[in-house]
């Protein structure tokens, strides 16, 4: 019997529904099924970052020169390369979602692997950039512009690392299942949407910190 024995007071009204792996998730009428709760999280996190963007720009109004100085130290080419890296990883993850839907797991695994490699490339480039900046004496102690640069990119990097763990979990799940077995849709969808959010946030961060700040 799969039903665990709990003391009386822990039982839900006397009835424990047995495990129902793969229980169907309700799809809202019209359009393709999405998990609205997931979007509560995504839009919420986007809004948190939106406030970060506004905070940085509001701070810049009081002393634009500091932000110009910071942007002039940043390497725009580095930032551009990282943007392209993340955009490409988003592409591979989007294609992997499509492959998972078509139950082409080998293809999905290859695409997810590529996405993971690009994610790690981004992280390595970012850390390299940090190392160069700190070696040249540009730390958050230098000015409020660097405070914003390091905290916003740092929080973004943390998001990216969480996304990397999620991608690895999804990849493992796809590999364990082998070819042609359906992968749980809601997890795959959540990981993909989260990953695209990481990409989306970097697009704005790149524009604000590297380009607009220098104007």
């Amino acid at each position: 019997m799969g039903t665990p024995e709990f003391p009386e007071f822990l039982r839900p009204g006397g009835a424990i529904t047995g495990p129902r792996p793969g229980a169907a998730r309700s799809a809202p009428p019209g359009g393709h099924p999405v998990e609205l709760g997931l979007w509560l999280f995504i839009l919420g996190d986007l809004t948190l970052f939106g406030l970060f963007f506004c905070g940085q720009l509001a701070e810049r109004r009081s002393d634009p020169e500091l932000f110009r100085a910071a942007a002039s130290v940043l390497n725009q080419t580095f930032g551009t390369v990282n943007t392209v890296v993340l955009l490409t990883s988003s592409l591979t993850v989007a294609l992997a979602s499509d492959a998972i839907r078509r139950q082409r797991n080998r293809r999905a695994a290859a695409l997810l692997g590529a996405g993971l490699a690009l994610a790690l490339t981004f992280a390595v480039l970012k850390v390299t950039e940090y190392t160069h900046l700190v070696a040249d004496g540009h730390t958050p102690d230098e000015s409020v512009a660097f405070v914003y640069y390091f905290t916003l990119t740092g929080i973004h990097l943390l998001h990216l690392l969480i996304g990397t763990v999620l991608l690895s979990l999804l990849l493992r799940r796809v590999l364990v299942l082998g070819s042609d077995q359906p992968v749980g849709r809601s997890f795959a969808e959540a990981v993909a949407v989260y990953w695209h959010m990481v990409d989306l946030l970097w697009i704005v961060l790149f524009a604000l910190l590297y380009l607009v700040a220098g104007s």
Binding site: P19, R20, P21, A23, E35, G37, L40, F41, I155, L158
Partner: peptide, 30 residues
């Protein structure tokens, strides 16, 4: 895995969001 989950799934995502909202608190050390 219950037929009618005890708590709705959006509560799970709300919890994750709240967790993310706590993260900037770490920076108060600096």
């Amino acid at each position: 895995r219950g037929e009618r989950p005890i708590l709705p799934r959006w509560v799970a995502f709300a919890n994750l969001w709240v967790g993310f909202l706590f993260l900037p608190g770490l920076l108060a050390y600096f």
